[in-house]
C-alpha cells in the first residue's frame, strides 16, 4: 500500500508530467486560458489516462510479452489508445450524458496527447505490474490536473496586469510555467 501511495506522490508531484517531463505541453499551454476548461480537461485526462494505462499494461503482460512482440509496443499502444478513447466516448454518450457534456469535446482530443502514450511507455520501462500501472496513470493525471489548474489561476491574474509588449502572450505564460517548475523542483526533497 505504501509503495502505491509513493507511486502516486512521485508521479503527481516529484516527476510532474508537465513541469518535469514536458509531456502534454500543447494542451497545458493551449487550454489553460480558462479555469473551467482546464478543470474539465483535467477530469478527462484523469479518466482516460487511468483506463489507458490499465489496458496498456494488460496488453503488454498478456499479449506483447508472451509472444515476444516487445518492439511492437509503440504501434500497438497508440492504436489501442485511439480506439479506447473512441469507445469511452461512445459509452459515455449512451450511459451518462451529464459526464459526457462535462468532459465533452476534450475526450477525442486526448488521443494524441503525448502524456497518454508517454505514461504507457514509462510503465513498461519501469516494469510496473497491473496495479502499479493503474496508480501511476492516476498519479500522472492528477499531476497534470494540478499543473493546468494552477496555471489557469495564474493566467487569470496575469491577464489583468500591464505587461511589456514583447512579453505579452506566450512568453509570460512560459515564465509562469518556469516559476511553477522551480516550485515543483522543491518536491524532489520529499
Amino acid at each position: 500500500m505504501t509503495s502505491l501511495i509513493m507511486i502516486i506522490v512521485s508521479c503527481a508531484l516529484i516527476n510532474n508530467v508537465v513541469l518535469n517531463q514536458f509531456l502534454g505541453i500543447c494542451s497545458f499551454l493551449g487550454v489553460s486560458q480558462q479555469m473551467k476548461a482546464s478543470a474539465s480537461l483535467g477530469g478527462a485526462v484523469i479518466f482516460v489516462l487511468t483506463i489507458a494505462s490499465a489496458v496498456a499494461s494488460l496488453l503488454y503482460d498478456f499479449v506483447l510479452k508472451p509472444f515476444d512482440l516487445d518492439y511492437m509496443k509503440t504501434i500497438v499502444f497508440i492504436l489501442v489508445i485511439a480506439a479506447l478513447v473512441q469507445i469511452v466516448e461512445m459509452f459515455l454518450k449512451k450511459t451518462s450524458p451529464g459526464l459526457y457534456r462535462a468532459l465533452g469535446i476534450y475526450l477525442p482530443l486526448i488521443t494524441t496527447n503525448c502524456a497518454v502514450l508517454g505514461v504507457a511507455l514509462t510503465n513498461v520501462q519501469d516494469e510496473y505490474n497491473f496495479i502499479e500501472s493503474v496508480f501511476a496513470g492516476l498519479g500522472t493525471a492528477i499531476g497534470y490536473t494540478i499543473a493546468i489548474v494552477l496555471l489557469a489561476g495564474i493566467r487569470a491574474r496575469v491577464d489583468e496586469e500591464a505587461i511589456p509588449r514583447p512579453l505579452r502572450g506566450a512568453p509570460v505564460v512560459l515564465l509562469a510555467a518556469a516559476l511553477m517548475s522551480i516550485a515543483f523542483m522543491g518536491f524532489g526533497g520529499l
Binding site: C26, S27, G30, V31, T112, N113
Partner: peptide
C-alpha cells in the same frame, strides 16, 4: 516578438485544444 518577427506564439497559448497531431 521584440524584433517583430511574425510567429504563432499567441496560438500556442490560446487556440490549441489539446490535440497535438491535429
Amino acid at each position: 516578438n521584440a524584433f517583430g518577427i511574425k510567429n504563432n506564439s499567441d496560438k500556442l497559448v490560446s487556440s490549441c485544444d489539446g490535440c497535438c497531431a491535429t
